[in-house]
Amino acid sequence: MTEEKRLLIYLHIPKTGGTTLKNIIKRQYHPKEVWFHMEKDMIPKMEKRGNVDQLKCVGGHCWYGLHEYFEKQFQYFTMLRNPIDRVISEYYYILRRPNHNAYPQIKNMTLMEFIQNFSLKSSNQQTRRISGSIHNPNLDHAKTNLKNDFVVAGLSEMFDDSIFLMKKAFNWQDISYSKENVTQKRPAIDEISKDIINELKKRNAMDIELYAFAKELLTEKLESLDSVSKQELELLKTSKYS
Rank of each mutant, 00 (worst) to 15 (best):
D53R: 14
Q54S: 15
L55M: 09
K56A: 08
C57H: 01
G59Y: 04
G59L: 05
G60M: 04
G60K: 03
G60H: 02
H61L: 09
H61D: 13
H61M: 12
H61K: 12
W63L: 14
G65K: 05
L66F: 10
L66E: 14
L66K: 06
L66N: 06
H67N: 15
E68N: 13
E68K: 15
E68P: 05
Y69N: 15
Y69H: 15
F70N: 11
F70T: 03
E71N: 15
E71H: 12
K72T: 10
Q73R: 14
F74N: 15
F74D: 05
F74T: 07
Q75C: 13
Q75F: 07
F77I: 12
F77K: 00
T78M: 06
L80W: 00
L80F: 11
L80Q: 01
L80M: 12
L80S: 02
R81M: 08
R81E: 04
N82Y: 02
N82C: 06
N82P: 04
P83M: 05
D85S: 13
R86T: 00
R86H: 11
R86V: 01
I88A: 00
S89W: 00
S89H: 03
Y92W: 11
Y92P: 10
Y93I: 03
I94C: 00
I94S: 00
L95I: 10
R96I: 01
R96L: 10
R96M: 08
R97H: 15
R97N: 15
N99G: 11
H100M: 06
H100D: 10
N101P: 13
A102C: 05
P104E: 01
P104T: 02
P104L: 05
Q105C: 07
K107D: 04
K107G: 06
M109T: 00
M109Q: 15
L111G: 02
I115R: 00
Q116C: 07
Q116I: 01
F118H: 14
L120D: 13
K121H: 14
K121D: 07
S122W: 03
Q125K: 13
Q125D: 12
Q125A: 12
Q126D: 04
Q126K: 09
T127M: 07
R128M: 11
R128H: 05
R128W: 04
S131L: 07
S131M: 04
S131K: 10
S131H: 06
S131Y: 00
I134Y: 08
I134C: 04
N136A: 14
N136Q: 14
P137F: 01
N138V: 09
L139R: 10
L139I: 12
L139K: 09
H141Q: 11
A142T: 06
A142G: 09
T144F: 07
T144R: 10
T144H: 11
N145T: 02
K147S: 14
K147C: 06
K147N: 11
K147W: 06
N148G: 10
D149M: 04
D149R: 08
F150C: 15
V151E: 13
V151Q: 07
V151F: 09
V152P: 00
V152N: 01
A153D: 03
G154R: 02
S156H: 08
S156N: 09
S156V: 08
M158T: 12
F159T: 01
D160E: 09
D161V: 08
S162H: 06
S162G: 09
I163F: 04
I163G: 00
F164S: 05
F164N: 03
F164E: 03
F164H: 05
L165I: 12
M166H: 04
M166L: 15
K167F: 08
K168S: 14
K168A: 10
K168G: 11
A169N: 09
A169K: 03
